[in-house]
């Protein structure tokens, strides 16, 4: 698994286009949000900025890159090649997704640390870490599921749009309007409860036990995504 992860990392850094879309673009967007934190905090809150940068990196740095990577490896039969070795299917997927996942976690750590340094830190770091990890798990799961219906890296530019834009929209909706109204709908949408969890972690004012209940919808999305992936994931291109 680690040998696959190592070569994936090499390939990521050799592919300039992927490097820009997965690393640089989300970092630039996050940097903009941090730079204009006064304006965005006035619109919503610092927790809202944290949630937006988390989903920007989660959607474009992690989710889209994961789908693109899996589609590309399938299209050029690299997945089939890996399956001709002694590594299990789970080991192959873990190896392929580990680098992009770790990079996203590192990016999130750096960006959220920068936000905390510039604008003031979160009320509950533990809760924030839980929210970030749950979001990362959800985006990886959704990436696996979406890869099942994505034929090529080019096709990924289309198939990833609904979830990428959807989670950003949900984050802004929840972050700017709160969850006092349409509470159930906002929490059940992908990214909704994770956003609320980040808001609670950064802004404070809500009991930890109450906030942790928000993990359930996010982790449910992980289960749904993995179940979908198990049904839909293909190891070879359609003939």
């Amino acid at each position: 698994m680690f040998a696959i992860a190592y070569t994936e990392l090499i390939q990521l850094f050799r592919n300039r286009l992927l490097l820009v879309t997965s690393l640089i673009m989300p970092a630039v967007v996050s940097g903009f949000f941090i730079y204009r934190h006064d304006a965005f905090a006035t619109l919503g809150s610092l927790g809202y900025i944290a949630a937006v940068v988390m989903f920007t990196i989660g959607a474009f740095g992690l989710y889209t890159t994961a789908v693109t990577t899996l589609a590309a490896r399938r299209q050029n039969l690299f997945l089939k090649r890996l399956r001709s070795t002694a590594v299990s299917d789970r080991g192959i997927l873990a190896g392929l997704l580990l680098p992009v996942t770790l990079l996203a976690v590192v990016q999130l750590t750096v960006v959220l640390t920068a936000l905390a340094t510039v604008a003031g830190g979160p009320s509950n770091v533990f809760l924030l870490v839980v929210a970030v990890l749950a979001t990362v798990a959800m985006m990886v799961g959704l990436g696996l599921a979406t890869a099942g219906m994505t034929n090529s890296p080019e096709h990924a530019q289309v198939t990833t749009l609904p979830i990428s834009l959807g989670v950003i929209a949900v984050t802004s909706w929840v972050g700017l309007s709160g969850t006092e109204e349409l509470t159930l709908l906002k929490r059940l949408l992908p990214g909704g409860s994770a956003t609320e969890l980040v808001l609670n972690a950064w802004n404070g004012g809500v009991a930890v036990s109450e906030s942790l209940l928000l993990l359930a919808p996010t982790l449910s999305w992980v289960v749904v995504a993995v179940a979908l992936a198990m049904r839909m994931f293909r190891w070879e291109p359609r003939r």
Partner: peptide
Amino acid sequence: LQESGFSPDLTVRESVRLIGGLT
């Protein structure tokens, strides 16, 4: 395999080491 199935962004040596090692 009948069709190649290697990653275009890896070198020849890296490909042999990776696939060979994973066997």
